[in-house]
Nucleic acid binder design. Structure first.
Lengths: 350, 350
DNA sequence: CGGCCTCCACCGATTTTTCGACACCAATGT
DNA sequence: ACATTGGTGTCGAAAAATCGGTGGAGGCCG
């Protein structure tokens, strides 16, 4: 069974219905003989009746049956199956317009879909699709596509409808956006929970574990920092990143090659550049980082700069620890830092 | 307003003197009337006396003076101090030639100066000075100065050198310029950000907020439209404009008297003339404008003509809004439109 | 030149989506 | 059996998006 988050962490996550821990561990309730995902909507049982398990198999084997509400077997993977299917359907032809009626035709209740997207991705399903379409459209315009052709290819039937929507998301009319760029974000599954990733045409500019409820604020910050619109979408760098992350988590990749974009103050940049120099599997102290960044003594500032890093894992801020050997802090939760370090030191993960 | 980190984040950063937030926000202390960078070394004030501001400008406008220890303007404040000094030095005697060596003698790195000018004003420092000299020279030529005297009085040591430079900027040799005019441009600071203003001998022909990235193109358009060169320089109308703008922003001036020059197509001119008739503090709809311009139904076209207006504020295109009460669009950014309207309706600007 | 084409700081009438409220359901504690 | 919790489906009103209008400017091409 090996690595689970610490018990108190799990208790907190279970209490808070933190869906980012789905798949990371399971909760078995001895009074009912049922086991659930951490995010199960049902009322919380008394804590003396709960037991934490690393896998569903384990729970089944111990005689528990899966909960009918959160269906811990049914989905196993984080996003419920119907969401995966729906997303796949969207990807089949992102330029197509999907109306509430189409959802109903697939047996999905639009309200349910909307609520799920709102909760998970911070926007309604329709808003997701719209952003997705406009992001693609901007891409084509940037490449110099003829405006009218682009419009007809992206789900709008009228010139003006497209224009209105475009201006609303990007702030500038399509004609003036020729050379502009936007940030495309996507969600990536990992053994440590879902990550949100963002990329411009130049490279990856965002990668974070999503359980920070900060998501909304993050988007705003990113938008301000890059002065660009943020839309959900696909992007070659994101695909590249997904492949490399998969290899990283399987322990076979030690050095990422996907390009990064990380603007910041001069001091921050120095710290981040230094982080990139720490080899796989090794650690540094905050003090060493401050020194390397040219400001010995500024270890506190180095710590802050570490925390401000927006590209987790690739800019390995998890490789910086306290001088006394303790782990220090980590934006995505200490247990993840521990797991990442463990992974890099060859500890077999669950 | 708009995008700042969450308040608790700012409090933490200020408390910790976190220099990574320098330039991201500013702290104004109401008990002392001073504003600082987050990293200011001075003793922390009581938190009930602090206010957070997004920009130094905002703080200044709210009546705070920059702290003498952390010098919040010094680094990030829009025109760095050394630039201001340098510009003042140029103004002292615009006809003087400033070589790289002179800059070095003042402790400035020519490359740095060039980069800053290129970035901020769209031309190198040398180009700025050359234009400045030529603009003055042209003004004198128009007034009938003796050609050779003019030349020698403006930093050129030889006739031919002046001619070359002159031809390069204006397209015509100086002898033919008598009776012609060029457009002098200058930068004007305002509570809503810096403006670029342009004037001929007849009056103001350009006034725009400079964060419109279009500046370069604008200049080209202006040059083509007026068939005149655009050079940095001073001009009585510009001085007049500066005084009136200051009064306008302080809320005491409601009608500008500085003369305007705005050539355009007949339709555009009709729209612009109508704009000038909208009284201070009132608004019209695009539809009303179209009607007033004699083409009811051409509301969209009226909007476009509005957008083509090159003299912001004075030709009050900000007083035109959507019929449904929404603000519509604004070249300088919607927030400016809102603030301008607020100012005119007596809302104390933040 | 004059036609042809693209783009634009809008408007009004239709869809379509969003949002709130409310009843219902599964899982659980008492 | 009944209360409690938070998700789900349904409904209707309110808010947005969309669609197909619009007239004018400016670039391009023969």
């Amino acid at each position: 069974m090996s690595a689970m988050p610490p018990v108190d962490e799990m208790q907190r996550a279970f209490e808070a219905r933190d869906s980012s821990y789905d798949g990371v561990f399971f909760v078995a309730v001895s009074s009912t003989g049922i086991f659930c995902r951490p995010s199960c909507p049902a009322r919380r049982p008394l804590s003396r009746n709960t037991r934490f398990m690393a896998t569903a198999k384990e729970a089944l084997f111990a005689g528990f049956r899966p909960c009918k509400r959160c269906r811990p077997l049914h989905t196993d993977g984080q996003p419920p199956e119907w969401v995966e299917e729906l997303l796949a359907w969207v990807e089949e032809d992102p330029s197509r317009r999907i109306k509430d009626g189409d959802l109903r035709a697939r047996g999905l209740d639009p309200a349910r879909v909307r609520r799920h997207f709102q909760r998970t991705y911070g926007m309604t399903f329709q808003a997701y699709c719209r952003g997705r379409r406009l992001g693609d459209a901007l891409g084509e315009i940037r490449e110099g596509g003829e405006l009218d052709e682009v419009i007809l290819g992206h789900g709008y039937e009228s010139h003006s409808g497209f224009r209105d929507a475009f201006v609303k998301t990007f702030g500038t009319p399509p004609g003036k956006s020729r050379g502009e760029d936007c940030i495309q974000v996507d969600w990536i599954e990992s053994p440590l929970g879902p990550l949100v990733a963002g990329a411009t045409a130049e490279g990856i500019c965002l990668l974070e574990f999503t359980d920070r409820r900060m998501l909304e604020a993050q988007f705003r910050a990113i938008r301000r920092l890059f002065k660009r619109a943020v839309v959900p979408g696909k992007n070659p760098h994101l695909e590249h990143l997904k492949r490399e992350l998969a290899a990283y988590f399987s322990g076979t990749l030690m050095r990422f090659t996907v390009p990064l974009v990380f603007p910041g103050t001069p001091f921050q940049r120095r710290v981040w550049e230094e982080l990139l120099r720490i080899p796989y599997g090794q650690t540094r102290t905050y003090e060493q980082m401050a020194q390397a960044a040219g400001s010995p003594g500024a270890c506190r500032a180095a710590g802050t700069a570490n925390g401000m890093n927006r590209i987790a894992i690739l800019i390995p801020c998890h490789r910086v620890v306290n001088k006394d050997g303790k782990l220090g802090g980590y934006g995505g939760g200490l247990w993840r830092k521990a797991r990442l370090l463990g992974l890099e030191q060859g500890v077999p993960s669950s």
